[in-house]
Design a binder for these strands. Structure first.
Lengths: 348, 348
DNA sequence: GCACAGATTGTTAGCGATAACATAGCGCAA
DNA sequence: TTGCGCTATGTTATCGCTAACAATCTGTGC
């Protein structure tokens, strides 16, 4: 506490982290005023403001948000929990979220679950322990403990991607069941009858499962059933698509349509068929799901369905930041994916 | 506010966030003991421990890490700052980081800069304001202010991907200049002479730039120079690869090799050449950079160079967590990428 | 000259946890 | 019995910042 006679209080210990007090002393005003300047809050005279800013800049002061958050009970963080970063789909959702949060002072923090409910639980726990202003997470299926935490959190929760189920709070997404149904209808309408499904093994990819359910439902309504199916897990999706396609076509030479659970394996299948000289979409039709950007560069445009990923991210972020027109909380927003027949379903 | 004579102190306000005190009251011990139980710290009798855990569970208590971090001056977060999530390269680095951090109690927090130095600066500022235990960030080129912040941070800093330059603290990566040189040498050795470059426009992708520099350097040493070059920005990389390839081959019909700055556009170029019936690697050779998983599914294996992404992530995380054998700080770890000639460079 | 509104700056009291240091039990050897 | 040495638990004082309120300083109108 004692200050030597020296007027300059400079660097008593250069390793000690800087605090508001350092800036306050360096600029000759109270800590409170420094705080106000650094947060652009309240009235501060122009001269004081500049003096403080210069002192802060000279010292290289970076405010301690931990202390700030504790004192103000406000945290400008939004937790975003997604299953994976490896498949173009979530990065695009993130883009939508970031775009919107950009000018709200909020900031996304990402957690990845690898499709494991127990990982989701721990990631959620960890996130909530930082008391974020909101949480965005993929899917409507969560462990019991996760549900409890979400319900208790006391901040806006938005479950994204899927709306086939009951949300904890708000939800933004598409109906995967309906998406599967719609694709099946388009395929049937185009005259295909011997249809096979190729997809991921993942028991926890609820959305892929729902698509398949919707798909089979629509087939059943037309008096049809899947002729064959094949699952994979891990590895390069493009390569797996190739391999699975080859396997299915060998096992069931008479199939006339291959429905893939995602575009990546669909693209692999397409490349395989083209390589093998199979007439697409004449002899065999193909369709995927997601509308990934990659498809644009393929030799032929794979039939697919856009999952509205960017829009989902934007809407979720708008709900969290309270900017969504007319949404106070507990709202469900259903987006409608558009089907793109591409070049791999023959025209009716 | 008023509570009837009831002895039970339960839920005075169900919306009030829970604190240690609530758990403490519910379990009949001091806050300190609750804190010890929840952190598995110090000696607590088995009976007390169980009583506390049950109380916490029943209440649905989630500790407030903000308060905890302020009091303990420790934050179990590691800032990771990368340019983009859209191109398979950083997700893989993240995987390496997560793998290692998993069992250290540390947790990565991602920030994305979109290759903009000013974004990097603000993301870094934001991160440092949470006082993380360390920072991992891509590249060695930063704004002056960013440099100052990194130098002042007082925690381990690891700059990743690149080692052609001077790190602030530690660095893990490959020499992109050398990688470019090495690829050029392989191409020249295979007998190609009229070589073109196709890459991103991005002025801030320093690593792509260094690869090109190294590449041209090696060409010059062999008395060669680039015959043509083409740049793009934005859009689907696969499609851009196609378009650029077509443009270059039209403009310079006599080129015999196309060097791409990344595998995605290289893959597009490969698909274009195959479609166009061009003899690869006979008439035209192709090479990319990165070794992305996607390539495995292509009709032909594109020549490429592995950037050791997983390994870089692991090593960076090990340095941060103090687990890296023999590394105290300020160390530079150079990894050596392996070249893969694939099917698109003719064998010498 | 004086009271007062409005603008600017300062003071005080936490926020919810943890570090560091008490303190209370308890068993056991002397 | 006394007291030492444990173990199990409690107390106190921050951590760095901000909300809320208090105090000071202008200049102005009368």
């Amino acid at each position: 506490m004692s200050k030597p006679t020296s007027a300059k209080p400079s660097s008593p210990d250069p390793r000690r982290p800087l605090t508001l007090r350092d800036v306050s002393e360096a600029s000759g005003v109270s800590e409170m005023t420094v705080s106000r300047v650094l947060r652009n809050r309240g009235d501060v005279s122009e001269t004081t403001r500049e003096r403080v800013l210069e002192a802060a800049r000279n010292l290289g002061y970076v405010p301690n948000k931990i202390a700030g958050a504790l004192a103000s009970q406000r945290v400008n963080l939004v937790g975003v929990i997604i299953p994976s970063l490896s498949n173009m789909v979530f990065p695009e959702v993130m883009t939508g979220i970031s775009d919107v949060l950009e000018d709200t002072g909020l900031q996304p923090v990402v957690g990845v679950t690898n499709y494991l409910p127990e990982r989701e639980e721990s990631v959620l726990y960890e996130m909530l322990s930082w008391r974020p202003s909101g949480v965005i997470l993929a899917g409507l299926e969560h462990s019991e403990a996760s549900h409890a935490m979400l319900a208790q959190a006391g901040v806006p929760i938005v479950e994204i991607m899927d709306i086939d189920g009951t949300p904890v709070d708000s939800a933004v997404g598409i109906s995967h069941r309906r998406a599967g149904r719609q694709m099946a209808e388009a395929i049937i309408a185009a005259g295909y009858r011997r249809i096979a499904f190729l997809g991921t093994q993942m028991p926890n990819d609820h959305r892929a499962k729902k698509r398949l359910e919707g798909f089979e439902e629509a087939l059943a309504k037309a008096g049809l059933a899947l002729v064959d199916q094949e699952f994979y897990s891990g590895g390069s999706a493009l390569l797996k698509g190739r391999e699975m396609t080859e396997a299915v076509l060998r096992r069931s030479p008479d199939v006339d349509f291959l429905y893939y659970s995602n575009d990546m394996i669909g693209a692999g299948g397409l490349l395989y068929c083209l390589d093998a000289g199979i007439d697409v979409p004449g002899k065999v039709g193909l369709a995927g799901f997601n509308g990934v950007e990659l498809l644009a560069g393929l030799p032929r445009r794979l039939a697919t369905m856009d999952a509205c990923r960017l829009e989902i991210g934007r809407a979720a972020a708008e709900i969290i930041s309270g900017k969504h027109p007319g949404v106070i909380g507990g709202e469900v927003i259903e987006l409608t994916p558009t089907i793109d027949l591409g070049d791999t379903i023959r025209k009716a």
